[in-house]
């Protein structure tokens, strides 16, 4: 009988991959809203995996920023655009086959590379707010400030792009 964290790992990993598959290649529907909803579920299962890896702060940020802010943005844009046409289009069978082969080869290469790596020593590190905040505001202070500048630039750029007419 495996330990509980191992069982939880298999559960969350299976859910992540299942929802991820349903997000990109749902066999029943090609509605973008369905894809967005499955992306939310994928991200929430990933947050579960983060908790299992002791990255508690990142799990919270993942749910807040990705499943909250980013997905609301996605849904807004999906509902802003009229995407009814998507469901009437034919899938390009050749492109789908070639893409699947390429993806399978890349997955094989990645997994082979992972398996040939040496396992690291088992140690414990807790990604709670306190140690993460300490390292963020000492060692990584400059990248942190640059990041805030990047967010400002993105905000100004988005406002400029969404104006009615560009001058």
């Amino acid at each position: 009988m495996p330990a509980l964290p191992d069982l939880l790992f298999y559960a969350f990993a299976g859910l992540t991959l299942l929802f991820g598959f349903l997000c990109v290649a749902n066999p029943l529907t090609r509605n973008p809203v369905t894809s967005a909803m499955f992306l939310v579920l994928t991200i929430c299962s990933l947050a579960g995996l983060f908790v299992l890896l002791n990255a508690f702060f990142l799990a919270a940020v993942q749910v807040l920023v990705y499943a909250g802010a980013v997905m609301v943005l996605f849904l807004f844009v999906i509902m802003l655009l009229d995407l009814k046409e998507e469901e009437r289009r034919q899938l390009n069978k050749v492109a789908l086959g070639a893409g699947s082969v390429a993806v399978a080869v890349i997955a094989g290469i990645l997994i082979k590379a992972v398996m040939s790596a040496k396992p690291a020593a088992e140690q414990l590190v807790e990604g709670t707010t306190k140690p993460l905040g300490r390292i963020l505001f000492t060692q990584y202070l400059l990248p942190f400030e640059i990041l805030s500048l990047l967010l400002l630039v993105a905000m100004v750029g988005v406002i400029l792009l969404s104006k009615k007419e560009l001058k």
């Binding site: 992540t16 991959l17 991820g20 598959f21 997000c23 990109v24 290649a25 994928t42 899938l91 492109a95 789908l96 070639a98 893409g99 699947s100 390429a102 993806v103 399978a104 890349i106 997955a107 990645l110």
Partner: peptide
């Protein structure tokens, strides 16, 4: 998961 994302981009 990376391969699934790539499949989405390609397909």
């Amino acid at each position: 998961l990376f391969s699934l994302g790539l499949l989405g981009v390609l397909a």
